[in-house]
């Protein structure tokens, strides 16, 4: 059974460079409710290290990572 993750909000962060992907995600997550999921699509190679580090530090969870050919979608669940 494949788990279907439904995002409450989607963000297009393609083309943005460090530190903007993490900054924009943090600003968006602040506006969301606990338990909601944010889908953030980025082309920043640094995001693979940065998004998990951000989630760990802020107490949120990355529930799924979808790696595409040119971009990656991170599904972030707001826990705090």
């Amino acid at each position: 059974m494949s788990e279907e993750i439904k995002a409450n909000v989607t963000m297009d962060l393609k083309g943005l460079a460090c530190p903007l992907p993490v900054v924009r995600v943090s600003q968006q997550v602040k506006k969301m409710k606990i338990g909601e999921i944010l889908e953030a699509e980025t082309t920043d190679p640094g995001a693979h290290a940065d998004f998990p580090a951000w989630a760990k530090s802020t107490g949120n969870e990355i529930v799924k990572i979808d790696k595409g050919a040119s971009s990656t979608k991170f599904y972030i669940k707001k826990l705090k």
Partner: peptide, 11 residues
């Protein structure tokens, strides 16, 4: 400034 804004994003 990159470190500062990154840190702010980290809460």
């Amino acid at each position: 400034f990159i470190i500062a804004s990154g840190a702010a994003a980290m809460g």
